[in-house]
Design a protein around this nucleic acid. Structure first.
Lengths: 197, 197, 197, 197
DNA sequence: TATGAATGAGGTTTCATTCAT
DNA sequence: TATGAATGAAACCTCATTCAT
């Protein structure tokens, strides 16, 4: 018989996570103190620890949530899938994504030395990569192109755009996406475009 | 006139930086304490502060050094340049690079929130990118490909490979490089830059 | 007129005290948190504070209850009294006493620095001691034996057995009791107190 | 090549331990904060942690030191040994012992629930007990007296005096010791006093 | 009556940096 | 030049207690 509704609890949890994400994006995981999260969230220190076992647990929750909302290759025919991927790249240029991107790079760094974070983080990469590879295997790729490797390349094209955008206000997202589009056109359109799933 | 030789001073400085780089690659900048560096380097705490103003200064020195030894696109004809780039990607798979790669990701994260580091770090990316773009401008690129954007894509292909390799022992570097090679072959008609289409 | 019966109130109070005693015996007063008592008792935090003013009050209630059930020297003739004392020592070896003994030592320590606890705790020692001394005064003691001091010695023989038993599974309770019995035999000429030397 | 002498380090360590012992005797282990020790010792918080791994480690060091300086049964003939034991009891009444006694009871309580402390603490009891038992085995004891059990009784007579003295200013130490003396006389002197060894 | 979410002071511990030697 | 003992602010976390429901 909980004292408050599950929705209320979820809202409080969200309040903490949103505050934490903002802090982490701004200052990184290690320059953010629990007090910072407490201040930003307006929730007392003690209460944070009723929702999360500790700072590491907050970080893990943030990382677990940091998956890409859009499915990188979505569903549908080849054209739809390609369009979805390009939209995905386009979203990196959206000013509203800035905090998310910054957070993403923090997560990459944390994943290097924290096995728990690495597991969570890899899931964000491995799952879409596997999906992309599955799609690529159905397509008549140009010779010399390995579907698994090409999937990694496509992920890399996203990851690199992310890093460069985080550091540099001046990235021309439209030109980047346009170039990737041309690139994909040269690779994939070389087969019959009607190749359905 | 200095009491000790410049070479001696440089050697001590190197000793500190090597120890710091090892620690930072292993544990990240923030989980590495000055004590860790002191232990790893065998140099006393007080002395470290005679070579560096503080921890931030050590980090900055490490970041300033973390440029890529190989020139991403080297010099020579197109074929040599492409070969150099592919070698560059290959080096990411070299087990001896592991510590460097880990350090690289730490730097990316630190660059997000530390303007001084960001400046140093961007230089590591912007300079090779500009060089790549300059080369690309001399080549007959397939239609729709913007040299500047394509340069960013090539950098991204490297950056993404780096992240994925850091997280995942199982990256098939040869396949990745092979696929990128095929990709580049399709985009750039090799041969002398002046060769007609 | 109370809303609930006095018996109900008493039962809840008991529930709290039993839980607290179990926690205190296991972890000591200071390593036991109010949350521990809440968990162990199944009674909510708020309600505990309707029965007790605070943690100190719970501790005081526990200490106030921790008197020895058996009367150390009981009543009757000398033989019965001696037999009761020896039974008292025997009870220390009873495995079921273990929690009580552990709690006892915790109380001793708390009594050192908490005047309120000390008062409650001394009552547990002073009362039986006075009773023992009163009995001893009626007996023909061997020369050199002071009844008050001997009463303290008998209490000490119990207290020391308690500590040693708490620390050491291997105490041979029967041998201890047997030796004390022989000792008492040598000191107190049994028989009717009025019996001549 | 230590920066300061071993004697200096030992003196600092002593400074911390003395402060800690004073705090622990006054307030118990758990009501004493590290800040209290810092204040009492005049040594900074950070430095305390260069000497001790943590509060538990300070406690363990205190417990490890809390052995009785006097050998409970000393050496020599029976008379000397008995005299030493009685002196030992007498020392409990010495006002200067007060802090030590209080600390002793805190240790007993901690030993109940802390295995590391229990080991250290038992050594303080088991070693003298074994020594006493060894001596007793060489004596012609009155019938019914088991040397090991009697050793436990003698330890108990000390332990109980300690507790009672801690709680009660009014313990008549001289009477207690006198009574124990009479008691021992009745038990041991019943054999030939010349029993050497 | 009964709940348990909420508070925030205070606990232990770490760590970048300084400075007497 | 070189050491490492020393500092103390600030980090993470716990817990007795309160109070809206």
């Amino acid at each position: 018989m909980p004292k408050v509704s599950a929705a209320y609890l979820a809202a409080r949890r969200r309040q903490i996570l949103d505050a934490a994400a903002a802090c982490f994006a701004r200052d990184g995981f290690h320059r953010t103190s629990m007090q910072d999260i407490v201040r930003e969230s307006g929730i007392s220190a003690g209460l944070v620890y009723r929702y999360f076992a500790g700072k590491d647990d907050v970080i893990a929750a943030i990382v677990g949530e940091w998956h890409d909302q859009r499915q990188i290759f979505a569903t549908g025919g080849v054209d739809e899938r390609v369009a979805a991927y390009l939209d995905y790249l386009r979203s990196v240029g959206d000013p509203e994504s800035a905090a998310r991107l910054r957070l993403g790079v923090q997560i990459w760094a944390e994943a290097v030395r924290n096995p728990r974070i690495r597991e969570l983080s890899r899931r964000n990469v491995d799952d879409p990569r596997a999906a992309v590879a599955a799609v690529l295997r159905t397509l008549p790729l140009a010779p010399g192109l390995d579907p698994d490797a090409l999937a990694r390349v496509l992920i890399a094209v996203y990851q690199g755009l992310l890093v460069q955008t985080v550091w540099d206000d001046g990235v021309d997202n439209a030109a980047y996406v346009g170039t990737v589009e041309a690139l994909l056109g040269a690779l994939i359109r070389s087969g019959p475009p009607s190749a359905p799933r």
